[in-house]
Write a protein that binds this DNA or RNA. Structure first.
Lengths: 211, 211, 211, 211
DNA sequence: CATGAATGAGTGTTCATTCAT
DNA sequence: AATGAATGAACACTCATTCAT
């Protein structure tokens, strides 16, 4: 229709996303310094020069990859905590599973491992990521834990360290998938893994033994 | 005595370790491709050429860094499991705290983060690391979990996924320290973090509520 | 009339001249290799592709710039020499001032500096320029000097070197204007400069002291 | 002797000068943008990478070429004016011929043409060149002209424009040699050219007809 | 053993040129 | 005729590796 009438135009709008998608894959796999722009271009089906029509430099491309991978992250989650009426255990379970559906099971899954691997080379970007993603994510979990503590549903634990302890296995699943997990080293079915994690954590948190 | 008698000799024998130590720091910080051998040499206080007296290539240096980082902690752990007579909860706690003392709190702490970041570029080395470290580490935890299950101390959980879920927060603490944690993004005191983790996990595992 | 009736047509015919004018400015300022065709197009208010509708290549554009800059000033000068009836001093003064009016004070002034800067990269074009402009310009001055020598108005000097010595300051004024003069380095008012030059040269040439 | 004992050392000290010499030739011939660093290296008999052991960038090399070409310029001249006891005409002749011997007839001869061609691309360097070379050179000629005016040897002329008018032919000879003169277009024997120039100028300046 | 000057293959980046629209 | 997205050859610059000293 409209789109087919202007394939060149449609292409031009889609290009940046195609390029960052290709770049994300290669950055995750080989690291920033180990990725050749020619390979990024090749994977996106364009020539090396075309990259520079959309990104000023390799570094600009990297930043775009991270920032584009961040925006959708922010939309998820916060609303859920506000409106949830069930138990805090179910809220925690829901938020983690939602995060999995929106991040872990999508093409954005590689972003956290990428940011972790390259933080040392891009400290300002790491700070931006921290401010934009990490602090807000921690705040989400903090509210959930405090909700459960206030209601008496959860045992008394240290909230601040608890936040990171609880999220670590979820994050590690992604990190693993794109590192040793991609090298034939054993990794698990995400559903079972998350199941076990939630089972352990929710039992660990619960004041009363759950069913 | 011997050492003081032949300081030149001692230096010569210590060189490879000084070089891999310098290399480890930089590889962890900047990644393999992002690290310049000149910087490694500089940090070790030798010239660029000297590196090649001890390592055939940058890749050989990387492999040495990883392999040197695989020390026989696992043997110590295995012995502990064999001989331990207390509760499985205390065994798990002991093994994790021991790992922390022998790896997490030493200069070897960067190795797991490095292997995770570079696995994609060194698949054979990743496999070697998997066989030497990961599989054996998992076996250690597997024995502990099965011990607790057999004795009835632990609730029925899926052992295989449980192993990784339980170890993930410990690993993530290291990964974090050398990535975003090094960029001014908030990270925790290891002791408190491990405390919370063990508190949650052991409560999550326990059939009976612990004290 | 014709022009106003077909503005599109007029534009089309004016394009090449607009393009070479823009190109001349940039070539003079940045040199041939240092000039980007995109900037030429931008300055002429067209797109990069449009350049190629009028010129086959960057080199063709350069040649057009030079050739277009070679206007029939020399014919006018030659006619002046043929028909002049006053003193040879006044003829020399008249020819140089005419050259100034027709070249030095117009948009063509950059051409000599450009040809001088790029002769090494375009030897055939330099030869063409030599044949078309330099040799004929020298011939003009040669005739004037010989006229003054024959009539006894000028002292005996070496004609061949005298030609170039006499024209050098005029040429240098242009060269300077488009190089260091454009960088805030001091340069003179052309009229005073030419005045001093003619004063010196004509006094230097004159057998008798002039008034 | 010493030198032959440390050929590597001697080479290292000589390298920068060898490189700037090669670069000067090519910059003069092809311009800054048109010169490939590989060709500079080739002409100096080294590899591309070696250039970067001595100069940070192409631009740094360019600046070194100009600045190295400046230092010897400054040494010449000034002392001569202070101590000269003969006529101002002979002083002017002496200074110009000295300039020729020290610059025009040496490997530095290409520097002025280079600076003229590239001033537009390196405005700060042009300003430095102006401050360091041009202003001081003009001051030299200014003192000579004023000396002749004060003594009554020279006719009244405008000193400021006279300075540049008088030096223009000398400068143009160099410029010409490295542009059209190098393309088979006619150029003159420097000695004859300078002779004619001095003959014309000194006669143009003299109040009394010289012998 | 140790050095660091030298190398050259490799990669990021630019830009003249093409061509589908 | 005019556009500007796309191309790819060319070049500046880096850095692992070598080797004469």
């Amino acid at each position: 229709m409209e789109a087919l009438a202007h394939p060149r135009q449609r292409r031009k709008e889609a290009r940046p996303a195609e390029l960052t998608a290709a770049a994300l894959e290669l950055f995750v796999e080989k690291g920033f310094a180990g990725t050749r722009l020619e390979d990024v271009a090749l994977r996106a089906g364009v020539s090396k020069g075309t990259l520079y029509l959309y990104f000023d430099s390799k570094e600009a491309l990297f930043k775009a990859v991270i920032q584009e991978g961040i925006i959708p992250v922010l939309e998820a989650g916060a609303g859920m905590v506000d409106s949830f009426t069930g138990s805090s255990a179910n809220l925690l379970r829901g938020v983690i599973l939602e995060w999995w559906k929106r991040i872990g099971a999508t093409s954005l899954a590689g972003v956290p491992k990428l940011m972790i691997s390259e933080a040392g080379n891009f400290p300002e970007l790491a700070n931006y990521y921290n401010d934009t993603v990490i602090i807000r994510g921690r705040e989400l979990l903090r509210r959930i834990l405090k909700r459960g503590l206030t209601s008496g549903e959860f045992r008394a634990i240290d909230v601040e360290t608890g936040i990171d302890v609880i999220f670590a296995p979820v994050l590690m699943m992604l990190v693993w998938r794109y590192s040793l997990g991609a090298c034939g080293c054993g990794s698990h079915d995400p559903a079972s893994y998350l199941n076990t994690h939630l089972d352990l954590v929710l039992n660990g948190l619960a004041r009363e033994r759950s069913a």
